[in-house]
Lab assay of single mutants.
Amino acid sequence: SEEWVEIALRLLELGREANINGTILNLHKEEIEELIRRLLKRI
């Protein structure tokens, strides 16, 4: 399964939302940290 691709796409999506909203992603901080942890486990 290409889970890391899904994770990377989700991170990009959150990054785009952050640019549009001008936020520092506090809302998504925990989700982002969890996604990155899952991503690093696969490398």
Score class of each variant (00 low, 15 high):
residue 3 E to I: 12
residue 38 R to M: 10
residue 7 I to L: 08
residue 35 L to D: 00
residue 4 W to L: 10
residue 22 G to R: 04
residue 33 E to S: 09
residue 27 L to N: 08
residue 9 L to M: 08
residue 21 N to Q: 05
residue 2 E to N: 14
residue 7 I to G: 02
residue 31 E to R: 02
residue 21 N to D: 10
residue 6 E to R: 13
residue 17 E to A: 12
residue 41 K to T: 08
residue 26 N to V: 09
residue 8 A to T: 07
residue 42 R to P: 03
residue 26 N to A: 09
residue 27 L to D: 12
residue 24 I to E: 07
residue 5 V to S: 03
residue 14 L to A: 02
residue 25 L to N: 04
residue 20 I to K: 11
residue 12 L to F: 05
residue 40 L to K: 02
residue 42 R to L: 15
residue 32 I to F: 08
residue 22 G to K: 11
residue 34 E to M: 12
residue 3 E to Y: 10
residue 36 I to H: 00
residue 20 I to V: 09
residue 4 W to S: 01
residue 14 L to P: 01
residue 2 E to R: 11
residue 10 R to K: 06
residue 42 R to N: 04
residue 19 N to C: 15
residue 20 I to M: 05
residue 2 E to Y: 12
residue 40 L to R: 03
residue 11 L to T: 00
residue 29 K to D: 06
residue 31 E to L: 13
residue 1 S to F: 13
residue 27 L to E: 06
residue 28 H to T: 13
residue 43 I to V: 03
residue 42 R to K: 11
residue 11 L to G: 00
residue 43 I to C: 14
residue 1 S to H: 13
residue 26 N to G: 07
residue 10 R to A: 07
residue 26 N to H: 11
residue 23 T to Y: 14
residue 14 L to N: 01
residue 18 A to C: 15
residue 30 E to A: 08
residue 39 L to N: 00
residue 5 V to G: 03
residue 19 N to H: 13
residue 13 E to I: 12
residue 17 E to L: 14
residue 26 N to F: 14
residue 10 R to L: 09
residue 4 W to E: 01
residue 41 K to S: 07
residue 13 E to T: 05
residue 16 R to V: 09
residue 37 R to F: 08
residue 9 L to W: 12
residue 33 E to G: 04
residue 26 N to D: 13
residue 40 L to N: 01
residue 28 H to N: 09
residue 28 H to P: 07
residue 15 G to Q: 05
residue 17 E to D: 06
residue 19 N to Y: 14
residue 14 L to T: 02
residue 12 L to Q: 02
residue 28 H to A: 09
residue 12 L to I: 12
residue 7 I to C: 15
residue 27 L to A: 10
residue 33 E to H: 08
residue 5 V to C: 15
residue 38 R to L: 10
residue 41 K to V: 09
residue 13 E to D: 06
residue 19 N to I: 15
residue 1 S to G: 10
residue 32 I to K: 00
residue 19 N to S: 14
residue 34 E to R: 10
residue 22 G to T: 12
residue 11 L to S: 00
residue 27 L to H: 12
residue 30 E to W: 06
residue 30 E to G: 08
residue 27 L to I: 12
residue 29 K to E: 07
residue 25 L to Q: 05
residue 37 R to L: 07
residue 33 E to F: 12
residue 23 T to A: 09
residue 9 L to D: 02
residue 11 L to P: 00
residue 33 E to C: 15
residue 37 R to P: 00
residue 13 E to L: 13
residue 38 R to W: 13
residue 36 I to K: 00
residue 39 L to V: 08
residue 23 T to V: 10
residue 36 I to Y: 04
residue 32 I to Y: 03
residue 34 E to F: 08
residue 18 A to S: 07
residue 40 L to W: 08
residue 11 L to Y: 02
residue 13 E to S: 06
residue 21 N to H: 06
residue 36 I to P: 00
residue 29 K to T: 10
residue 38 R to I: 05
residue 41 K to D: 09
residue 7 I to D: 02
residue 39 L to A: 03
residue 6 E to N: 11
residue 38 R to E: 03
residue 24 I to W: 12
residue 6 E to P: 04
residue 19 N to W: 15
residue 12 L to W: 10
residue 22 G to N: 09
residue 42 R to Q: 05
residue 43 I to E: 01
residue 23 T to Q: 08
residue 8 A to L: 14
residue 27 L to Q: 10
residue 11 L to M: 04
residue 12 L to E: 02
residue 9 L to S: 03
residue 43 I to P: 03
residue 18 A to N: 04
residue 11 L to V: 04
residue 34 E to S: 06
residue 35 L to M: 07
residue 15 G to H: 09
residue 19 N to P: 04
residue 4 W to Y: 04
residue 25 L to M: 07
residue 41 K to G: 05
residue 14 L to W: 07
residue 1 S to P: 09
residue 41 K to I: 12
residue 30 E to I: 07
residue 9 L to K: 04
residue 31 E to Q: 08
residue 16 R to E: 03
residue 41 K to Y: 10
residue 3 E to A: 12
residue 28 H to L: 15
residue 21 N to V: 13
residue 31 E to N: 03
residue 38 R to S: 04
residue 31 E to M: 06
residue 36 I to C: 10
residue 16 R to K: 06
residue 43 I to Q: 03
residue 20 I to D: 05
residue 38 R to Q: 08
residue 28 H to V: 12
residue 15 G to D: 03
residue 43 I to K: 03
residue 4 W to A: 02
residue 1 S to I: 13
residue 5 V to N: 02
residue 26 N to C: 15
residue 8 A to H: 03
residue 11 L to E: 00
residue 3 E to W: 14
residue 8 A to E: 02
residue 32 I to A: 02
residue 8 A to Y: 08
residue 35 L to R: 03
residue 42 R to D: 03
residue 22 G to L: 14
residue 35 L to H: 01
residue 7 I to M: 05
residue 19 N to T: 13
residue 25 L to D: 06
residue 38 R to G: 03
residue 24 I to C: 15
residue 37 R to G: 02
residue 37 R to M: 06
residue 40 L to H: 03
residue 34 E to T: 11
residue 3 E to R: 13
residue 15 G to A: 15
residue 22 G to F: 07
residue 36 I to F: 09
residue 3 E to Q: 09
residue 41 K to R: 14
residue 41 K to A: 11
residue 42 R to F: 14
residue 15 G to K: 03
residue 14 L to Y: 04
residue 19 N to F: 15
residue 25 L to P: 09
residue 33 E to N: 11
residue 4 W to H: 01
residue 25 L to Y: 02
residue 15 G to N: 04
residue 7 I to W: 11
residue 11 L to W: 05
residue 40 L to D: 00
residue 21 N to F: 14
residue 22 G to M: 11
residue 5 V to E: 02
residue 14 L to F: 05
residue 18 A to G: 06
residue 32 I to P: 00
residue 10 R to V: 11
residue 43 I to R: 03
residue 17 E to T: 10
residue 3 E to D: 12
residue 5 V to Y: 10
residue 29 K to I: 14
residue 41 K to E: 06
residue 37 R to Q: 04
residue 15 G to M: 15
residue 18 A to D: 03
residue 8 A to F: 14
residue 43 I to H: 03
residue 23 T to I: 12
residue 15 G to P: 02
residue 38 R to D: 02
residue 43 I to G: 02
residue 25 L to I: 10
residue 1 S to R: 08
residue 25 L to R: 06
residue 33 E to V: 14
residue 5 V to W: 14
residue 42 R to A: 13
residue 10 R to P: 01
residue 4 W to Q: 01
residue 24 I to K: 04
residue 34 E to A: 08
residue 34 E to K: 08
residue 43 I to F: 09
residue 32 I to W: 09
residue 28 H to R: 05
residue 13 E to N: 03
residue 17 E to W: 11
residue 21 N to P: 07
residue 42 R to E: 03
residue 6 E to S: 10
residue 19 N to V: 15
residue 13 E to R: 08
